[in-house]
Design a protein around this nucleic acid. Structure first.
Length: 275
DNA sequence: TGCCAGGCTTCAC
DNA sequence: GTGAAGCATGGC
C-alpha cells in the first residue's frame, strides 16, 4: 500500500473527466481502476492518496500514469486574469490531472467515443472487454482487462457489433488489424515528435483530428494536444466568440482544454454549484 | 419520443 | 480545400 501526499489530486474529477472510461466507484472517495491488465484500488483522504500497489509499481507505473510530478498550480496561474470563464474552469477543476494511459486502449476507446455520450462509451468498452479481455478477479468482484489488439482483430464483425459499436465496428476492426499485423507500432510512436505522431495516428481508420489529439494527450502525454469536440467547440463559440486565445497556452494547451471540457460539461448538467 | 453524444468518411463542388 | 450528407445506438 502506497500513501502519497495529496496535492492537486481529486480522484472524482480524474475519474469523471472523460479521458479514461475504466474507473469504477468503490465506496466514498474510492475507485477501482482497471488499466494495464491490473486492478488498482484508489482511496482519497483529506491529505493523502492511497494506492494498493508496491513501491516499485508506484515509481514505475502509477506515478507516471497520474502525472504526479507535475505542478498543475503553475498551469492554472497562467490563465489570463481577464478570462473569467477559464479562471472559473481551472478553479472548478482543481485536482484534475492528465493521465498517461496505454496507447492501444486509448486509441480504441476514443475511436469508439465518436458521437457517443460518456455513459454510452463506458458501456460499449465494457462489452468489448467482457467479450475478449482477460478475466481479473478482485475478491468477490470480477473485472475484465482491456483486450489485446490480436484478440480484438480476431473478433468477427458480428461480435464487434454486439458490443454496441454501431458503425464504429469497422473502424475498430481496421485499427486492431493494423496494430496486430504490425503495420503500426504504437510503442515506437513514443519517439516521434508531435507532428509526426499526429500524422501517423491520422492514418488509422476511424481516427480524425479529434481522436488523434485525444490519443496524443491522454496516452502519449503530449500536452500540446487540443481535442476539439462538440463541448469545446460550443464553449469557444459561446464564451470566446469563436476565437479562443490558444497561443497563450503553448505547450500545455491540452491541460487547459481538459479544464474547459470538465467545467463546461459539468455546468451544462447543473452541478457546478457544488464547486 | 425525440434529441444529443469527447466525429469520421465519403462525395460534390 | 471546403461543406454537407450519412452513419448506429445508448442515455436522458
Amino acid at each position: 500500500m502506497i500513501k502519497a501526499a495529496r496535492k492537486d489530486f481529486d480522484i472524482h474529477k480524474i475519474a469523471e473527466s472523460g479521458q479514461c472510461f475504466r474507473f469504477f466507484p468503490n465506496g466514498e472517495n474510492a475507485f477501482v481502476l482497471v488499466a494495464f491488465s491490473r486492478i488498482l484500488h484508489i482511496a482519497m483522504q483529506e491529505d493523502a492518496v492511497c494506492l494498493d500497489c508496491t513501491e516499485k509499481e508506484f515509481s514505475e507505473l502509477w506515478e507516471t500514469y497520474f502525472d504526479l510530478s507535475r505542478d498543475y498550480a503553475d498551469i492554472r496561474r497562467a490563465v489570463a486574469p481577464e478570462d473569467a470563464f477559464l479562471r472559473a474552469a481551472v478553479q472548478y477543476g482543481e485536482g484534475m490531472r492528465i493521465l498517461a494511459q496505454d496507447p492501444w486502449e486509448t486509441l480504441i476507446s476514443f475511436i469508439i467515443s465518436q458521437r457517443k455520450s460518456i455513459p454510452a462509451i463506458k458501456g460499449a468498452i465494457e462489452l468489448l472487454c467482457k467479450s475478449c479481455g482477460e478475466t481479473l478477479r478482485d475478491g468477490e468482484s470480477v473485472f475484465y482487462a482491456f483486450p489485446t489488439a490480436e484478440k480484438v482483430a480476431a473478433l468477427s464483425m458480428e461480435e464487434l457489433r454486439a458490443c454496441a459499436l454501431g458503425y464504429r465496428a469497422k473502424y475498430v476492426q481496421g485499427a486492431a488489424t493494423m496494430v496486430a499485423e504490425g503495420k503500426i507500432d504504437l510503442d515506437a510512436l513514443r519517439t516521434y515528435d508531435d507532428d509526426a505522431l499526429l500524422q501517423t495516428l491520422l492514418t488509422i481508420p476511424g481516427v480524425g483530428s479529434k481522436v488523434a489529439n485525444c490519443v496524443m494527450l491522454f496516452a502519449y502525454h503530449r500536452l500540446s494536444g487540443f481535442p476539439r469536440d462538440v463541448w469545446i467547440n460550443r464553449i469557444i463559440e459561446e464564451e470566446y466568440g469563436g476565437a479562443f486565445p490558444l497561443s497563450r497556452y503553448k505547450g500545455f494547451e491540452g491541460v487547459i482544454q481538459q479544464y474547459m471540457f470538465y467545467y463546461g460539461r459539468s455546468r451544462a448538467r447543473g452541478i457546478t454549484e457544488t464547486a
